[in-house]
Design a protein around this nucleic acid. Structure first.
Lengths: 235, 235
DNA sequence: CGAAGCATTGAATTTTCTCAAGGTCTGTGG
DNA sequence: CCACAGACCTTGAGAAAATTCAATGCTTCG
């Protein structure tokens, strides 16, 4: 959590210590398990230590929209600190390790360290900024650009937590999940991947993605990392 | 601001007074004016007193996505309190009155009234919740349901600030703006409105919308107001 | 090895878009 | 007060993007 938080917000030693001392219960999850469900009233938040999770909702017709992907260091349900009832569900999309901390403990910590309140608040604001960019992505770009944009974002976010090597990263996500993330069908994801491969913009193995032409992919996806609000070097 | 805030967060008298005493500079705007632009570093926030504004971004190809519509009582750029650089632009879509308050003043007020910090934070979390619902709307529903959903949301939000009478409200928005909001073309908005009229779900005049079949429209739009996190009576 | 899940490909269909023309409303200036 | 310009809305027709359905192939894991 420190690593992630300090990538978006500089912490003093004392603040860093307060965070380390926050009691955390670590849980291991298999892929495809719900962590929290729409309608629940949680009293804790979950910090991702390892693996990937997604935030999703189902439409009445049973279609799933994935509204967010979260990576190690993220706190996907930080909102529950101030919104009693969950308006989303969160599930693991790979084997995960997550750490639960109590709202109560987090609130107490924030009272003693007001700058941590600001840091957490900022974190939720960046989540919101990503939602906005995804709205632009889904609302205005075609499938080809949508995929490119998403891959660019994942590279930058994963690099910020040290999970990228040479423009290449693990992405244990099925094409069906990617489809639900960018609002197209799974079949069309497959076709779009083909097109991106043929254009020399991506190389994939089952669980790993390599982006051999970063400049080209950024242009294709109209990607500008401003909206991620990283401090320090970004693109 | 009090009316809106207290609809999502109960305030004490003292807190209400602190808000009333926040220095505000009122400005009148014509329709179609930018209030703040992507890339800027504002030192103030804007509270909408009258009229409608939208949050938007342009794609490289020049297409516009409207990520949010804001109504009186909303603070569309509250995020700028903790995110230095704007990642969006905000414009009026009708004649507006807005009140600017300084970040500095808001921060001081929050220090003295920690529960107001929570109230503002909560407000930004609800904005985020709306973004998520819009992602579901744009990503998974067809044009017909998208329009229905948006109209349901606007009715509920406008009713919370007293701008609805008998399932009818002013909506000074062009079909082009609505198109950019829900990610379809303006032509298709027109066709979709026709279909909704023929189904007896909406009645429109130039600037006013009436929803004669509220139950039917909610069902069509798969609308559930949970995500708006209103306190007290909702639907 | 075999089953299950995942990915790919083709073909037909649907939704939505674009282009283009015509119609309606509204505010302004003569 | 009326005519007109400009913005906005409507409608049709053809085109494009993406979907669905269905069949086949590939991996991985027990």
């Amino acid at each position: 959590m420190n690593r992630k938080l300090s990538s978006i917000f500089p912490l003093t030693d004392e603040e860093a210590r307060a965070i380390r001392e926050l009691p955390i219960q670590v849980v291991e999850l298999k892929s495809g398990q719900d962590i929290v469900r729409l309608g629940e009233r949680p009293y804790q938040c979950c910090l991702i230590l390892q693996g990937f999770t997604c935030v999703y909702k189902l439409s009445v017709g049973g279609k799933r929209q994935i509204m967010a992907l979260h990576v190690p260091g993220d706190i996907p349900d930080l909102q529950s600190l101030h919104l009693e009832v969950m308006d989303i569900s969160i599930a693991s999309i790979s084997p995960c390790a997550v750490g639960f901390f109590q709202h109560e403990d987090a609130r107490r910590m924030c009272e003693h360290h007001p700058r941590l309140t600001a840091a957490f608040w900022r974190e939720t604001l960046i989540d919101a900024s990503i939602y906005r960019e995804w709205l632009l992505n889904i609302g205005q770009r075609d499938a080809y650009a949508r995929v490119a944009h998403l891959l660019c974002e994942l590279l930058i976010r994963l690099r910020a937590v040290g999970l990228v090597e040479d423009h290449s990263f693990e992405l244990p996500i099925t094409q069906e999940e990617m489809a639900d993330t960018i609002g197209i069908s799974a079949v069309h994801v497959s076709r779009t991947f083909q097109a991106l491969r043929n254009a020399g913009l991506i190389e994939t193995t089952r669980t790993r993605i390599h982006l051999p032409d970063w400049e080209g992919l950024m242009e294709t996806g109209e990607f500008d990392p401003l909206y991620l609000h990283l401090r320090g070097e970004a693109a």
